[in-house]
Design a protein around this nucleic acid. Structure first.
Lengths: 118, 118
DNA sequence: TAAATTGGTTTCCTTTAGGAAACTAGTTTC
DNA sequence: GAAACTAGTTTCCTAAAGGAAACCAATTTA
């Protein structure tokens, strides 16, 4: 192939790739999508309930991920005036925009599992 | 709250969470969705083209991620009998099932960027 | 009074992710 | 013959992710 052959349609789609990168910077990792998924599916959930739902997560990890999600305005943290005090985590309006994405991730996981069993 | 108050709808949705986990085990990380996105958007692409499209990726990392994606049957690797030889990576039929997911990730990234600018 | 539950934090540790730079080998162009 | 391009590999390194266990203060139940 000649060196200076012009590529008419240069590969790479900077806008889309940047968008993918943005999303994954916030949400990649082992637990974040599972946390959001739980809050979407189950509604407002307390710390210990989350810990039980997310089988195997360490409290330190759960605490850290929840803080990051809160900072990014995807969830809220509310201290309830109960005895003993409980803390409730809930999805925000902005977090709700992840509904379809979480759905696709879940669907694809199911599809893929079926595919590799074959 | 009484200790033994029965929770009618126990929190946690094991099936969905397992599916999310499955997906993210294959695809979380900095580059995999970007690689798949490029192959979906641009069609079959050579190693060096991918390297250029994925701004900043190290050849070692690209090589490793491509191998993992191939092992999971999401992409194919084809050595072309050109001079010099070129290697073309392409999305598989199974990889195509990620179309909607990639789309959602991209859309959400754009949405989120607009949201946080506000 | 002892044990358990609340929502975490602290410390220590191992594993994985990821990047920089140098290098390889075959081919081809200058 | 020198340089450049093909597609990687190798080595070395740092930073981040993640887990285990212990601990904490306040409250409540047994």
């Amino acid at each position: 192939m000649k060196k200076d052959q012009k590529i008419i349609h240069p590969k790479g789609c900077p806008h889309q790739l940047r968008a993918i990168k943005d999303t994954m910077e916030l949400l990649s990792g082992k637990w974040k999508f599972q946390i959001i998924g739980t809050l979407i599916l189950s509604g407002a959930t307390r710390f210990m309930e989350l810990k039980r739902a997310l089988d195997g997560i360490a409290p330190k990890k759960l605490s850290k991920d929840l803080q990051e999600l809160e900072i990014n305005q995807l969830i809220t943290r509310t201290v309830k005036d109960t005895k003993p005090i409980t803390v409730e985590y809930a999805i925000t309006e902005h977090g709700r925009t992840l509904d379809k994405l979480i759905n696709e991730i879940t669907e694809w996981g199911l599809t893929h599992r079926k595919e590799i069993i074959k």
